[in-house]
Write a protein that binds this DNA or RNA. Sequence first.
DNA 1: AAAGCTGACAACCGCAAGATC
DNA 2: GGATCTTGCGGTTGTCAGCTT
Length: 279
Amino acid sequence: MVAMKGSLATQKEWRKGPWIGEEDKLLCEYVSLHGEGRWSSVAKLTGLNRSGKSCRLRWVNYLRPGLKKAQLTPREEEMIIELHAILGNKWSTIAKYLPGRTDNEIKNYWRTHSGKRERSKHNKKLQRPKVKNVLKQLKQKQQHEQQPQEYDIKSSMSHEETENETKSFHTQNNNQQEILEMGFMYPTTIEHQYTVPSMHDGFSSTWQDTLADDGSWFSLWDFDEPQGFSDYVDQFGKCAMPNQTSFGAGGDYSMQNHVKTSCFVDTYDSLFYGKDMFV
DNA sequence: AAAGCTGACAACCGCAAGATC
DNA sequence: GGATCTTGCGGTTGTCAGCTT
């Protein structure tokens, strides 16, 4: 109950600072009895001298069941970097992709490590692996695994369409977030998408190096090179199936409206496991 | 041993959006 | 329809432990 606005006389002085065991206990009891929500009632019903806001924060970030207390795994760290490149500082959205992790935790991680990454980026810039090499390996792998029912998106589009879309790609960065959000709407769960091994045989070193490079897959694809991009379209198209509205980490293609949106890290995964999921 | 630095984590603050009165 | 309340989010700050100088 935050007191009536503007009235200092009635303003309640909430306790601040670190929580003690007894407070945690009271809060847990409250949630077990009343469920999450109605945080402003906590103080009234439990005697806990904490604001609703503080209670919610404590519960969400520390007491809630299912939270992972362990350090972030390398894969989780990768995901944070990947997702941040798409979503920016949308910590709560990023957290949705990492079960058991909180937005606060992710935010803290990012802040702590962003400086490191910047330095690393600067130091390694000249060692960046070339997109073409990555794509070459990908092509080889796909040729090896090619299946008869594969459907080639690119061949279903006119040359002009492809050309235009390639040109317009650079103006479509805003779509990345939409696409990622779209991912929730389609049958592939983000968990599947991210738990599918991204380090495939013969590919892992390239991929990891690229990711470690600067944490951004945009550099990986090197969109300044039109050829690199059309290679990508080739590769990605071959993984797609007709009648599939979207796929991948939020999908890079919409089969219905032929809008190419973006190429991002998870596309890599899609290229490999797309077949398993849709064929 | 002490001071300074750094990383990790917890918590607070202001703001905005949605819900309720 | 407007005022107020509640909730959630992102930015920021404070604290502490471990490491370095």
